[in-house]
C-alpha cells in the first residue's frame, strides 16, 4: 500500500505546497512516493527526497514536462497508477488543472480541496464558499485528492528517499506554452506567508494600492493580497486575489484594508489566526470576522501604522 504525491516545482526547487501535501499523505498511512515530472528537474527531485516521511521519489525527466501541461502530466500519472491507493496533489492552480483529468482517466471521482482526513476513504471539504463543511466517503478503488495546503503543516526535512528514474509517457502534443507573465516579487509567496496585507476597492487606484500598502508590507515582511474588486479594477494582477475563486490563505496575521468582507472574500481568509480590518464603514461585514477592527480612513490609518511600527 502506498500513496503517490504529485510534486509541484520549477525544476530547480520544490514549491512549498508539496510539503503540505506530503503531510496529508502521511495521515493516510502507507509508504509515500513523490512523482517529479519535469525537464532538468534533478534539483526538485533531490529536494523531494529530503522531505521527512518520503520513501521513494520517481523522476520523469523529459522536455515535454517542462511546461507542466495537464495533458502530459495526467497521462504520466495514470501510467504510474499501479500499487497506489491514493494520488494526492496540492489544490493549487496546477493541481486543480491536472488532477480531475487523472480522475476521469481512472474513472473515479476526485475529492477536491480537502481540509481533513477522517480515514483512508473519508475526507472533509468545504462547499458553498466555506459556509459548510461536508464529510464525504469515496467508494472508488483509487482516491484522487487535492489538498488545501493551509489545512496541513509543511513536512519537515531529514528524509532520505530513494530516487528512481521512470520512463516518460508519450507527448500528447496538443498544448504548447506560448508565454508566461509571472509576477516577480521579493515578498513571501501569498499562499504561504505568515503575514498578509490585502487591499480592496477602498484603495481607490493601483497607485494608491502600492503607495499605501507596500510600506506596511515592507515593515511587516508581509505578502500582498487583494479582493476581487481590486483585481477587476486593475489595481493589481490576478495572482493577488484572495477568496473562494482566488487563493486560500491562513496566515498568522491578515490585515484587510478597504475590503468590505463579501462571503467570497471571507472564504479565502477566514481561517487566518488573527484578522485585522481597517475600514471607514463601521457596519462593513469584515468586522464580523475581525479580531481587531479599526474604523478609520485607510489613507490616514495605514501611514500612521507604518510610522508607529
Amino acid at each position: 500500500m502506498a500513496v503517490l504525491v504529485i510534486a509541484e516545482h520549477d525544476n530547480a526547487a520544490l514549491k512549498a505546497a508539496t510539503r503540505n501535501t506530503v503531510t496529508a499523505a502521511a495521515r493516510l498511512g502507507g509508504d509515500i512516493h513523490v512523482l517529479v515530472a519535469g525537464s532538468g528537474c534533478t534539483g526538485a527531485a533531490q529536494a523531494a527526497a529530503q522531505l521527512a516521511g518520503v520513501a521513494v521519489v520517481k523522476v520523469a525527466d523529459a522536455a515535454h514536462y517542462a511546461d507542466q501541461t495537464a495533458e502530459n502530466l495526467a497521462a504520466l500519472i495514470v501510467a504510474q497508477k499501479a500499487g497506489y491507493t491514493h494520488i494526492l496533489a496540492a489544490s493549487t492552480s496546477q493541481g486543480k488543472n491536472t488532477m480531475p483529468r487523472v480522475a476521469a482517466l481512472l474513472d473515479v471521482a476526485q475529492i477536491s480541496d480537502i481540509v481533513a482526513i477522517e480515514d483512508a476513504d473519508t475526507f472533509v471539504r468545504p462547499i458553498y464558499a466555506g459556509n459548510a463543511l461536508a464529510t464525504v466517503r469515496s467508494g472508488d478503488a483509487v482516491k484522487v485528492v487535492t489538498v488545501r495546503t493551509t489545512a496541513f503543516d509543511a513536512a519537515g526535512q531529514g528524509g532520505g528517499a530513494k530516487i528512481e528514474a521512470i520512463a516518460a509517457a508519450p507527448d500528447a502534443g496538443v498544448a504548447k506554452l506560448l508565454g508566461r507573465e509571472l509576477t516577480k516579487s521579493a515578498r513571501p509567496e501569498l499562499a504561504a506567508a505568515k503575514i498578509v496585507v490585502s487591499g480592496g476597492r477602498g484603495m481607490g487606484s493601483g497607485e494608491n494600492y502600492h503607495k499605501v500598502l507596500e510600506p506596511l508590507a515592507d515593515k511587516l515582511g508581509a505578502a500582498l493580497g487583494a479582493s476581487r474588486a481590486a483585481v477587476d479594477a486593475g489595481f493589481v494582477s490576478n495572482d493577488y486575489q484572495v477568496g473562494q475563486t482566488g487563493k486560500i490563505v491562513a496566515p498568522q496575521l491578515y490585515i484587510a484594508v478597504g475590503i468590505s468582507g463579501a462571503i467570497q472574500h471571507l472564504a479565502g481568509m477566514k481561517d487566518s489566526k488573527v484578522i485585522v480590518a481597517i475600514n471607514k464603514d463601521p457596519d462593513a461585514p469584515i468586522f464580523q470576522v475581525a479580531d481587531y477592527g479599526l474604523v478609520a480612513d485607510l489613507f490616514q490609518a495605514v501611514p500612521e501604522l507604518v510610522t508607529a511600527l
Binding site: 466555506g130 464529510t135 479580531d291 479599526l294
Partner: peptide, 18 residues
C-alpha cells in the same frame, strides 16, 4: 461516487473588538 456522510457549519470565529 461520493457519499456525503454529514454537512456541518464551520467553527465560528470568536467575536472581536473594535
Amino acid at each position: 461516487r461520493l457519499t456525503t456522510l454529514k454537512v456541518v457549519e464551520p467553527a465560528k470565529r470568536q467575536a472581536g473588538i473594535k
